[in-house]
Design a protein around this nucleic acid. Structure first.
Lengths: 193, 193
DNA sequence: AAAGTCATGTAAAGCGTTACATGATTAT
DNA sequence: ATAATCATGTAACGCTTTACATGACTTT
């Protein structure tokens, strides 16, 4: 599939970048749907250079430090466009360890179940908060009124990330309610009025 | 992390199984949050046997065919319980090629954008349908009134899968609406009344 | 001075998919 | 008979993470 390749081509297509810049974009902006460590990015940049998809210029930064600024080639642009326009079949659903544990819920006591779900809920709510803050910043600082601007892409994927978290949180809430109700009933049965 | 290990231990903990049975469960029931090919399952079963987490009995099936029925050991049960009860930090958000392409939306024409989103919407709706059918079957055939039954685990993860698809579909719908509106405005501007 | 960030790489190990390989049993 | 499913494995390759490695520049 070489998705990392196309993620890199797409970013360099937006503007010229160094490997370090790419790393930051992957782990800050794109982190909600794609990411990579620098140990994967640098070898891929080398490969793409060998394949003629990108080229680089070595620029001095201070006295001794040098950085490589990468640009996309015509060949790279065409390859990227081909990938972008091709319609894909649905990917397999992403793996999810928390859901896997939830599947094995029968092996936990109600107290343990509630502890797990509450902890997950807390973390998800915190994450949602951050995403909503990002959205406020985006709406305040960028112009998203036209679809043909890079910021519109930022906007719709951030919107989807927020929806995803909200949906997860809703599910967690419903699970907690059901388990809590069940636990109370169990307690009530042991202490009938 | 060895998540496959614990997925297998959890399943064998529910009931004894062959590698082939595990494969079917992974690719039918668990497919919405974990899965594995047989080429990954068989070596893992061997490894878990070597580690003393599971044991197997070779049973004849017909005249010549033999199958290995795996059971969990005490050691395996304890290891599984440890894993299950340990609270995990949030995983990195799953990668998503469609969202990645959506991020690069500026490099597509409105027509291409709409084609992409409609195709994704169709596929997601079909998937949602299947999940809802599964839910109807589950509710009609299994007793999910008590949390301490294996079926309750099936129920809550299926519920989460349905929520996830609905949320994705909602997002696709909103994107389509915005792009379609924008496209109409663009057309209107070229053909003013 | 020290800590943090910028900047670029390589090596080893783990995880996962695709392809290779074989053969028995069951349903049509 | 033929196709589908049951049943179990290995090999090669690709993707990703963790760890190893180095050094410059900037902020406190």
């Amino acid at each position: 599939m070489r998705t990392l390749k196309y993620a890199i081509l797409g970013l360099i297509n937006r503007e010229t970048m160094t490997g370090y810049d790419l790393m930051k974009v992957f782990n800050m902006e794109l982190v909600n749907f794609w990411y990579a460590k620098h140990s994967q990015i640098y070898p891929e940049l080398k490969k793409l250079t060998d394949e003629g998809m990108i080229t680089f210029e070595t620029l001095p930064e201070g006295d001794k430090l040098r950085k490589k600024i990468y640009s996309i080639t015509e060949k790279g642009k065409q390859d990227f466009q081909n990938w972008l326009l091709q319609q894909d079949l649905l990917e397999p659903t992403p793996k999810d360890i928390f859901r896997l544990k939830a599947y094995f819920i029968e092996s936990m006591s109600n107290e343990e179940i509630l502890a797990h779900f509450y902890y997950q809920l807390e973390q998800r709510q915190e994450k949602l908060s951050k995403l909503q803050t990002n959205m406020e910043i985006l709406l305040a600082t960028k112009d998203i009124s036209t679809i043909q601007s890079p910021e519109y892409g930022d906007y719709i994927v951030l919107k989807s990330a927020i929806k995803r978290e909200k949906s997860y949180i809703e599910w967690l809430g419903e699970c907690i309610e059901e388990v809590a109700t069940n636990t109370r009933i169990f307690v009530d049965e042991r202490r009938p009025l």
